[in-house]
Design a protein around this nucleic acid. Structure first.
Lengths: 228, 228
DNA sequence: TAGATTGTTAATCGATTAACAATC
DNA sequence: TAGATTGTTAATCGATTAACAATC
């Protein structure tokens, strides 16, 4: 009954929440007020029951026959994710990916504010990317401690990821968003989210290979393709 | 028995394969030849049985008591993912993220080669990023058709993602790696992999909130923090 | 009211984990 | 040989889907 009990929600459901949020915001911008699970499901090509189950973890309640009140739903998702409060973060590694993350305005809408960037490469130190100056990596721990920064983003090569994580832990950082393709050793109480882009590519590669097989098999089974 | 029957493997398992691959390559570089599931599991902090199950989808077989022969294992994973052949791809949208993807050398190791980039913004057309010149978006369909490009990468804002997908489909592209935060309408036979960075951030945000709750609860239950 | 939609409770499905025989 | 590790078959766990009573 009470919204937001100690529900955590299944992780797959949590992963889907930002997708709902995007859609709801676009509905909201086009002046819409109410939406049903059926309609959301159609747009996202999933099942209505899954939509209702997913939204339930935020504590929101809809109205039978009517659906959900969009502003309340947006607020419920944002609150559940903690995205209506800003979380400060340090980013380490201002190569291609790091610079892209630093320059991405959209994180603001996700409550994430990168307040400082670091790099081990002296030639990058002093650069200003986005609004942020790149600082030498050895200043990270101390600064994180003094600023009580809760989150760190790792965008360095695999080889240096662990040492960066160590520095973050030393600085009291509690959550690490890790874009380096290797697993990190951190003490209990520090949470890590690995974001290996190669995972998505792996799935896509396998799917592509499969559709090709199907296509070829179909080809040998028919007299001829309906050629062009 | 025969390696690579029509096994597809569970998607979560496929997502983990690149992680194994990274680790195995680093073992390989340090001159190692054999590895057991136990050892892989330790490094990645997962269960040995999961490692064996995951590796089994590639068709590889290990030897009792000894483990797996690393070069064969690397080859099996690469073959399963199709990463030992190069897949050509077009990338659309050379903003922050698009440029980062374009500049990322590591995709070569994943069999992905971005052979052309496109943008709707005239001021970006003609720029050279990585080795690739940025072309006007209206050339995409025709060029994709002539070059038989199988894969497209979408790195444009949500609003223009669908029209880019349409152009890709028109050009005969069969697999779309979509970094725009919205779902795409594509015909049957075209596969889409959505890569919404916000999903990972959502999970991390919820985990962080949870650890904080635990910390605070623990705080109220103890006489005092072991201060500093 | 009648009907559409929610939210709960149960059933199914798939992935992970456990147990253990086979084997080098 | 003895023992460690694989790979198979079974059990558990969790997420998705289905069925349906509650309700605006």
């Amino acid at each position: 009954m009470t919204p937001e009990k100690n529900k955590i929600g299944s992780l797959p459901a949590v992963r889907r929440l930002p997708t709902y949020l995007h859609l709801l915001r676009s509905f909201s911008e086009s002046g819409r007020e109410m939406v049903s699970s059926t309609h959301i499901a159609e747009k996202l090509k999933i099942e209505p029951i899954q939509v209702r189950k997913d939204l339930a973890i935020t504590g929101i309640e809809g109205k039978p026959k009517v659906g959900y009140y969009i502003p309340a739903l947006i607020d419920a998702i944002e609150t559940f994710l903690g995205w209506n409060n800003t979380t400060d973060a340090f980013l380490v590694g201002v190569g291609n990916l790091g610079s892209a993350l630093l320059g991405y305005e959209g994180f603001r809408k996700h409550g994430l504010k990168i307040v400082a960037a670091f790099d081990a490469d002296d030639s990058r130190v002093g650069q200003v990317i986005g609004d942020v100056e790149v600082l030498p990596i050895h200043k990270l721990s101390d600064l994180a401690m003094r600023m009580h920064v809760p989150m760190g983003v790792i965008a360095v090569p695999a080889e240096s990821a662990q040492s960066v994580a160590d520095a973050m832990v030393l600085g009291g950082i509690q959550a690490i968003w890790n874009f380096a393709p290797r697993s990190l050793d951190v003490p209990d109480g520090v949470v890590v989210q690995n974001e290996d882009l190669a995972s998505g590519l792996a799935v896509l590669s396998v799917k592509l290979a499969r559709t090709r097989e199907i296509r070829e098999t179909a080809g040998t089974m028919l007299p001829a393709g309906n050629g062009g």
